[in-house]
């Protein structure tokens, strides 16, 4: 195994995906490439929102706990990725918590890309699988 990169680009990353395998792959890649110090993983959008709410409540002004990047899948049961983003934007003040939102999906339909851009132009749309080259650009 190659040496993981110890120079982290971000403090905290949140991965939201209902598929365990996906989460495993993504987490491993992030770790191997030294993308961030901490990686939070949630298997549903609602759970992720709960987690974030708690995080904000507990940590209070401790902003170093907040995720700098959130990777979210689109196709999830209960609440999909778009709903999560909308809900996130509604619930959290960007002055307190303003992570880079990345839609990470296996969907290759133009429609999904279009929808993402419609919510906000700042959201990054990425197709699975993540690669080293892609991560380097983030």
């Amino acid at each position: 195994m190659k040496e993981p990169n110890t120079k982290f680009r971000y403090e905290n990353v949140l991965l939201i995906d209902d598929m365990e395998l996906d989460n495993f792959i993504n987490k491993k890649l992030l770790e191997i490439n030294g993308f961030s110090k901490n990686i939070y993983v949630n298997t549903s959008a609602t759970a992720a929102l709960e987690f974030l709410k708690n995080l904000v409540t507990i940590s209070r002004q401790e902003s170093k706990m907040y995720p700098d990047v959130i990777f979210v899948d689109i196709n999830m049961p209960m609440m999909d990725g778009f709903q999560f983003i909308k809900e996130f934007k509604r619930l959290f003040d960007p002055k307190i918590i303003d992570p880079k939102l990345i839609v990470l999906t296996s969907s290759i339909f133009q429609n999904d890309r279009q929808k993402t851009l419609e919510i906000s132009e700042n959201i990054v749309f990425l197709n699975k699988p993540l690669t080293k080259e892609i991560l380097e650009k983030l």
Binding site: L21, L29, P129
Partner: peptide, 17 residues
């Protein structure tokens, strides 16, 4: 295509790993 795409992406991701 969508449902196929997920496993393919996983295969590719695993291969990348």
């Amino acid at each position: 295509s969508h449902n196929l795409r997920g496993p393919v992406a996983n295969l590719l991701g695993l291969a990348n790993l």
